[in-house]
Design a protein around this nucleic acid. Sequence first.
DNA 1: AATCAAACTTGACAATGTCAAGATTATATC
DNA 2: GATATAATCTTGACATTGTCAAGTTTGATT
Lengths: 213, 213
Amino acid sequence: MPVMSKKSYHHGDLKNALISAAIEIVAQEGVYGLTLRKAARKAGVSHNAPYAHFTDKQALIAAIAVDGHSKIQSLISKVVEKYPNDPLQQLVHLAWAYVQFGLRSPAHYKITFSGLIENEKNYPAFVEVSQLSMSAIKKITADCQSAGILKKSDYEVEMVAVSMWGLIHGLVSLVIEGQVSSKLLMRNPPKAMLIATLQQVVCVPLDVSILNS
Amino acid sequence: MPVMSKKSYHHGDLKNALISAAIEIVAQEGVYGLTLRKAARKAGVSHNAPYAHFTDKQALIAAIAVDGHSKIQSLISKVVEKYPNDPLQQLVHLAWAYVQFGLRSPAHYKITFSGLIENEKNYPAFVEVSQLSMSAIKKITADCQSAGILKKSDYEVEMVAVSMWGLIHGLVSLVIEGQVSSKLLMRNPPKAMLIATLQQVVCVPLDVSILNS
DNA sequence: AATCAAACTTGACAATGTCAAGATTATATC
DNA sequence: GATATAATCTTGACATTGTCAAGTTTGATT
């Protein structure tokens, strides 16, 4: 791994530098503000340098999405480690991680989870990492069912996991889009909102205090 | 309302013509294929004509979203008329309308419900129509609660409605993005999928046969 | 040390969003 | 009904963008 020297012809770590730059741009100017040339400028290279690492503008966007999935996954790992054998805590904190990521970095969240990538199958890294996310949710869901925390439906585990995923993702989307009135948010901050939602799905009553950590 | 004469300087109904053209483009070439100039070409006007009706490219996108909301709302109206005093049927068919719209016109659905509009507050028509959608869902949800079909939570009706909305929207999003494996879809076609999902939320068992219509 | 491939640059091109200024037509006012 | 006014549409121009082509620099391999 070559050191990032100040002024060499070769950047050394341009790919990651471009991704970071792109994430910053997206955070500051939104999805439509992202430009290949702008990212290149921010990384201090010429306007065509990105093409050595990304075939497309879409490929850079896909890389941002991969980064988003990775961030969520590292959060999930931490949560699973912190609450072993407690799938309810894992589930709630998993959902909470999504909400936090979504509210903290809306644009990044959108790119990652809201289907802004046109042909995802063209980007194997994205396909792989998004399947990993799904696997994590599936595992936690299955554990919840075994522990009697989630209803067992007649359909397979994946079915219920998709429902959970959808529920959380849908909620976050609505909050980000502002379709949930701010008044409602004031009276029911996201954390309580999440609990209320999960209570619809979970068949044991939830104690809100489990979230104080 | 002037007739759409063949070759007058004034188009007569350019605004709607542009929206239709844009929807077609989006359906055929995806969101990134949409271009102001392309829509203008398709409507047979000069490249700057759209600016008489839309301040922005974003404004045209917002108009597409408004159209999507309108389509869903007319579907909702029909369903509510068809099943008066049967909130469960209303709920299921409402959800089903979303799924159908999403699977039939993925790109249009994305623009309408997936937050592709950057600053929605800048487009009052969009804000208004999306609030109407929410109101419809809220009413049906409340009716379901009154009928004992949906659990009453400690939180207000809007809370539960948001959950329902989120659940449906999240599911459709995942299907559109292809994050739900096609194998799963084969074994559980969308209609059954929807039922499975609703069974997580609804506290009375659902009979799949109610969907045969 | 010579070769090769990867990483990066410069240059070019068509397409796009949008501004400015002018042309055409509908509508309202007298 | 003529005239003013505003809405609608056109032509022209410009900077920016994604991407192709061709060349340059450099690290790696032999």
